[in-house]
């Protein structure tokens, strides 16, 4: 492939002497669904937060569509075409479902300093279209605070898609959902990725989800990258088996 969506080289971060992420390098190509897995405390979320700009790495480089993003703020990185969902959903509880999406559209169209028109009437058709894509358009006018958790995850996905991103960062997209919902949500995500030719980097605990949808899997252990391969190869990787059998037997049982 000619261009990488994301090229990470030598990324490191430590907190007070504890090396959370150590010399991690990998790349992500357009249209690819890349999973980042590893036992608890392996450094997945730290890694994510560095890509997103919430944390500043100690060293290393993050090239997003051939542009260095280390030192940029989350808002700047978003502007480069990155959508993000959170492990614990972060939505606006005092707004309706549709307004949550409109918020992202307003930001994308640089209308946040506008003092004239009513926000709830702006970009509503586009917002409804996005809600339709994630399958919750019929809940458009409900307050977000009254939504079921699975539906909130869908709202987040719609919000993340609002600026037509080329890359989605999804931290535990199915955490806290019922098994059936998980499969549905990941299938939906995979469809959208195909349709829009997006790249996705996601972390996930549920190995069923990972092995069913990921094109490629990165395995992180104690801050180090120990595997970067196809699902089939990762499944058979002795080091990965060691890590999981040694620490999280249950998880590998799913696999």
């Amino acid at each position: 492939m000619s261009e990488t969506s994301l090229q990470i080289t030598g990324l490191s971060k430590s907190f007070g002497g504890v090396q959370a992420v150590m010399d991690v390098s990998f790349s992500l190509h357009p249209g690819e669904l890349l999973a980042l897995i590893g036992p608890n405390g392996a450094g997945k979320t730290t890694c994510f937060n560095m890509l997103n700009g919430q944390l500043k790495p100690d060293s290393g480089s993050v090239m997003l569509f051939s542009k260095e993003t280390v030192g940029l703020k989350p808002a700047d990185i978003w502007r480069l075409g990155v959508g993000r969902t959170f492990q614990i959903t972060a939505t606006y509880s005092s707004m309706t479902v549709c307004e949550n999406v409109q918020m992202a559209l307003l930001s994308d169209r640089q209308q946040l300093m506008s003092f004239t028109r009513r926000a709830s009437r702006m970009y509503r058709p586009e917002a409804l279209e996005l809600l339709k894509q994630v399958g919750i358009v019929e809940q458009e006018d409900r307050p977000c605070s009254t939504l079921a958790y699975g539906d909130l995850k869908r709202v987040e996905l719609a919000v993340a898609l609002a600026n037509n991103p080329r890359l989605l960062l999804m931290d535990e997209p199915t955490a806290g959902m019922a098994p059936k919902e998980r499969v549905e949500l990941m299938a939906l995500t995979a469809d959208i990725v195909k349709e829009r030719n997006l790249s996705v980097l996601f972390t996930e605990h549920d190995m069923d989800v990972v092995f069913a949808h990921a094109d490629r899997i990165l395995v992180l252990n104690r801050g180090k990258l120990i595997a970067d391969d196809t699902p089939e190869n990762v499944r058979n990787n002795p080091e990965v088996r060691m890590v999981y059998l040694g620490t999280e037997t249950e998880e590998i049982a799913h696999a």
Binding site: A75, F86, N163
Partner: peptide, 17 residues
């Protein structure tokens, strides 16, 4: 709305620019 968004969730707001 943006002001209220920031109050409701700062991380979400940052991540939509």
């Amino acid at each position: 709305y943006a002001m209220r968004a920031v109050r409701d969730s700062a991380v979400r707001s940052e991540s939509i620019g």
